[in-house]
Amino acid sequence: MPLIMTKADADSIQKLVVDLLQKTKARCVVLVDQSGRCVAHADSSEKFDVDALAALIAGSFSSTRALAGLVGETEFFSLFHQGENKRIQNIVVDNDRLLSVVFDQRATVGRVRLCAETTAERLAERFRQIAQRKTTDECLPRESLVEDTGKRLDQIFEP
């Protein structure tokens, strides 16, 4: 079943992500689902290719989870990458989502991890509520959406 979010859901999730960005003075915060989609993101002045970031984070976490299984762990709950200038802290939100914080020397690892774990718990609670609630009455415009998507693909492919 697709994940269907209302405006209130999207706003509350976006607020949590933006708050985390501001509290940690991070460069970018991305909420990713485990299939590699970006669910929400916030960034500072520096812009990243969020779609590619989400896909790679999810891929990295999937392979790490498989590694955990091989060594007898259920999973590794957090993953940290350190570079010369930038670092990435990944935290598991729930079975389907990951929170990733890209930061530099302006933020400390401990503070980022602490804030990210708190935010992850709140996000997990929010997604639990979304899953349990009755779904919206909205639905997609079926045939017109399909037809127009086909026409759009025709338009964007260069001859």
């Binding site: 079943m1 697709p2 269907i4 899953a131 349990q132 609630r133 009755k134 779904t135 919206t136 009455d137 909205e138 639905c139 997609l140 415009p141 079926r142 045939e143 959406l145 399909v146 998507t149 086909g150 693909l153």
Partner: peptide
């Protein structure tokens, strides 16, 4: 793309009709 969107639309239509995601 057509198949995926058609399927997605069917799922959302029937969910809206039934009124219960569960």
């Amino acid at each position: 793309a057509a198949q995926v969107l058609r399927r997605l639309s069917e799922m959302t239509e029937s969910t809206a009709a039934s009124g219960s995601a569960l």
